[in-house]
Structures are given as structure tokens and as C-alpha cells.
Design a protein around this nucleic acid. Structure first.
Lengths: 167, 167
DNA sequence: TTGGAATGTCAACAACACTGACATAAAATC
DNA sequence: GATTTTATGTCAGTGTTGTTGACATTCCAA
């Protein structure tokens, strides 16, 4: 099964099934490490990853609406609502009725919510910082390139929306 | 705050909180893409990701014991057992009592199990192949380096165990 | 042979996703 | 102004996957 024409086999060795399998397992094991530290913090608060995700994206886009959050998180409103309800009850998130469109609820982190967000993201950044430092800037660039190529196009949109620093 | 000594600030720009945040979100969005294709296949079989993981690692190490699998998957034996039971009932996995130690059960994929494994891994490889191809070999190398650095040490052990192709 | 450790199974429960149905309020449209 | 659509929230029910607790079996060693 020769590829195109001029492309020699040598430069495509990284596409063997064996290499791809290693990549798949690397994603599995790395994601576990990636979520391990926040998970430990969340346990103390009787929260789960769903709460983490909500807090993260409300922090990223203060005043975002429920619908916006639904699109980013890719869950049902019932599922998100359960999470938001507990976060609001616990005083970590504030929900304000929209001024222009009163149907919308705009979401903000309270002081306590920001404190939890900082604790969670600090733990996660610490691990990622260590991994970045160990791998070096060149590797980080490749890491980001592959991850972006692996996203669904719609998700890449949400990802790009928050882009500020030059890639 | 100065690192070692000679390291100039310039070369550490990739460690800014903003860059780390982008990395965190990239992991989140990419992992969703990474699991999306197998998830669709699993739906048809009324299985979940836990079944996928079990099938994957039994395929990787035929004859592995339940305890072995537990260490890799990082769940309780009760949780794994439920998944294995359904896979065995459905004829995808065979459980053989150990010959030397009759307490152990050795796990194998049946023909049907291998067929499902192929379908799942094919879907996942297809996406990863596309991402690898888009990013190029250099990027793939960096991708793998960062992921390995992000794993918990114990998980990296399990990862390395299956290493065959030179990194 | 008795007791402890390892291995695996069964039962019950919690978190978090899902679907479906429905209620409310406001905006948009006719 | 009446109707439809949109945005949000809620209730009920279900499924997957994690948990703990209790227990059976098997092996090994005192």
C-alpha cells in the first residue's frame, strides 16, 4: 500500500499501528494523571469532575450563559443544572438574570468560587508545568499541535475562542 | 524565583500560567475527541468506556489476571468484575481458572471479543492517525514526551511495560 | 488443621451522564 | 394581541461506573 508517490516509508514510521497504539495508551494514562490532583481536592468538597469543569469555564468566561456552557461542556441541561444548583446553593457561583434578555442567566464565580478554582487549577498547572519543564518547549509545541488536531472541529472552535497567546 | 542560574526568562515563556491553561483546555477538548468514535460504537452494544478499557488491555496482554487488570485500570475489583461479567456473559471474554494457582482467573478475548476490539481500536487509530499526520513526526515526538511526563509514576510503569517500538 | 492472605463474587449505594415530559418567562414573529 | 420560539429550570426514570461491605474459595504457612 504505497502512500502518495515521493513520500518515503521512513518518514511515516510514526504512523504504524504499533505507534498509534502507544499514543492511545499514552492518552489514557496521561489523562488519569492530568485529573488526579484536582480529583483529590474535589473529594473534600463532595464535588466531582462535572463541578470542576463548570467552575473552570465560568472562570474563563465570567458572565457566560447556561446555554453557552452547555455547548462547551457537551452535556444535557439537566446534567449541568444539577451541578450548577449545588454550586449556587453552596455559594460558589452566582446566577444573575440577564439585563437585555431576561430569560438568560449569567454565571459568575463568587469569592469562594474563585478560591476553589484557584486551588483546582493550581494543582493542575503544577503537574502540567512539571511535564512541560521535563519535556521542553519544542515538545510542548508538538504536544499542542497533536491535541488540537485530535479535537472535533466544533470543540476546536470553543478552544480557539479563548486563544490569546500566540501558538 | 530565579530558576537555576544561566536559564534566561525567554526560554521559559512556554511555562506561563496562560500557556498552561491552554494546555489544560487542550487536554480536555482533545480527550473528548479521542473517546468520541469508540463511544459511538459502544453505544450499539450497550457498553461503556469501562468495557472498552477492559477489552483493550486484555487484548494487549492475553491471559492477564483480574488483579493485573485492576492495577492497570485503577478501579476496585468490584467495579471491574461487573464489566467482566457482562463481557463473559456476552461471549466476548473467556475466563480460565489458573492451573498453578486456582484462585486466579486468566482472561482472553474470544473471536467476537477480538472483533469488537478491532472495531474500537480501528476507530481510535483512524483519528489518531489523522492527528499525527496533520501535526507531523516532530510534533508527535513532543506529544508523547509531554504525555509520558504527565503520568503518575506507577502508571508510567504500566505504560512502559508494553513498550516495544523505540521511542 | 487452623488461620491468614490473596483472589474473586454478590449486594447495595452514590455520582453523573442520559431521555422524556413539562412549566415558566421572555423574546420574536405573525 | 395571539402564537411560536427560545432559554431556562424541574421532576421522574434509567444506565454506566465508581464506591464500600460482606462473603466464598483457594493457597500457604505455622
Amino acid at each position: 500500500m504505497a502512500e502518495g508517490g515521493g513520500q518515503s516509508g521512513e518518514s511515516l514510521l510514526f504512523l504504524t499501528d504499533e505507534q498509534l497504539r502507544k499514543g492511545i495508551e499514552a492518552m489514557f494514562f496521561a489523562y488519569r494523571g492530568f485529573t488526579a490532583d484536582p480529583d483529590r481536592i474535589l473529594e473534600d468538597h463532595a464535588y466531582g469532575r462535572a463541578h470542576h469543569r463548570a467552575v473552570h469555564f465560568i472562570n474563563r468566561s465570567p458572565g457566560t450563559t447556561v446555554n453557552n456552557l452547555l455547548a462547551i461542556l457537551g452535556v444535557t441541561k439537566q446534567s449541568l443544572n444539577r451541578v450548577l444548583r449545588s454550586l449556587i446553593e453552596d455559594g460558589l457561583v452566582e446566577s444573575r438574570v440577564g439585563t437585555r434578555d431576561k430569560r438568560e442567566r449569567h454565571l459568575y464565580l463568587t469569592e469562594a468560587g474563585q478560591a476553589l478554582e484557584r486551588a483546582l487549577s493550581e494543582a493542575q498547572r503544577r503537574r502540567m508545568r512539571a511535564a512541560y519543564r521535563a519535556a521542553g518547549p519544542e515538545a510542548v509545541s508538538g504536544f499542542r499541535q497533536v491535541l488540537e488536531a485530535m479535537m472535533d472541529p466544533e470543540m476546536r472552535r470553543h478552544f480557539d475562542e479563548a486563544k490569546e497567546t500566540g501558538g
